[in-house]
């Protein structure tokens, strides 16, 4: 498959902390990549760099061969690289449905429409379908602030999902989701992602989840990618397991 996302020598420091050092990876279209490593290893920074929230000191980011280094998040988002967050970024005073409707309006380029109503029956239908697939139907008319932690997380992912991404970046999609629901959520999510051929990168601390859903794993440590391979091979490697993942 063609390379859809590529980073070349990404480096970024915050004061004395090296958050990314010479990160060069190629992601092929349709891949499901798990990003693992200890806290502070640079996983979230990697997502921040790709989406333009943080600018690299050195290095370049290419999306389908186009240089997107230094572009702001909104432009990168419109190009098709979309993300969800470790701490859910949702609109807590709007209803869950309105959250979704705004995402849909943004996708359709109606974000700056100031005359036609946001709530249009066709959009509502699509939003409700999306909410149903994330199991959020019962919260649709409640303010997002009332969602339980797991629900906030799901809404955050659903917002990203509603934009019909080409590449979806997820920062710890299952943290805050109960162990019982974890696999249900990921099953649904991955099924849709696979069906629609969305390239997916996700940061994850739960190695069971990584093992089950990632085709490829990038191991981060001190801002560097120290291992790259399929989960079976990688997790069989004792050094990787012990030193980096801390998973016996």
């Amino acid at each position: 498959m063609a390379v859809v996302l590529e980073t070349r020598g990404l480096t970024r420091t915050f004061g004395r902390v090296v958050a990314a050092e010479d990160v060069s990876v190629q992601i092929r279209s349709g891949e499901r990549v798990g990003l693992v490593g200890p806290n502070g290893a640079g996983k979230t920074t990697f997502l921040n760099l790709i989406t333009g929230y943080v600018r690299p000191d050195h290095g370049r980011i290419l999306f389908s061969g186009k240089d997107i280094t230094g572009l702001p998040p909104r432009v990168i988002t419109r190009m098709g690289i979309v993300r969800s967050f470790q701490i859910p970024q949702i609109y807590s005073t709007l209803s869950v449905l309105e959250n979704m409707l705004l995402a849909l309006a943004a996708r359709e380029g109606r974000g700056f429409d100031f005359w036609n109503p946001l709530r249009r029956s066709r959009a509502i239908e699509e939003a409700m379908e999306l909410l149903a697939s994330f199991g959020l139907t019962e919260y649709a008319y409640r303010p997002a602030a009332e969602l339980p932690e797991g629900g906030r997380k799901l809404l955050d992912i659903a917002l990203a999902f509603a934009l019909r991404p080409i590449v979806l970046l997820m920062d710890e999609p299952t943290s805050g989701v109960s162990t019982k629901d974890k696999f249900v959520v990921m099953d649904t999510l991955m099924e849709v992602l696979q069906r629609t051929g969305v390239t997916t990168l996700f940061v994850e601390h739960d190695m069971d989840v990584v093992y089950r859903y990632a085709e490829r794993v990038l191991v981060f440590q001190n801002g560097r990618v120290v291992a790259d391979g399929d989960p079976q091979t990688l997790f069989a490697d004792v050094t990787v397991r012990r030193a980096v993942i801390g998973w016996e």
């Binding site: 989406t51 949702i90 005073t93 705004l102 309006a105 943004a106 974000g111 700056f112």
Partner: peptide
């Protein structure tokens, strides 16, 4: 309208507004 909702969205969470494009 969407823009009117975007205004309230800005109050709630600017990061997500940018990340909706």
């Amino acid at each position: 309208s969407p823009l009117g909702y975007a205004v309230r969205a800005v109050r709630d969470n600017e990061v997500r507004v940018e990340y909706l494009g």
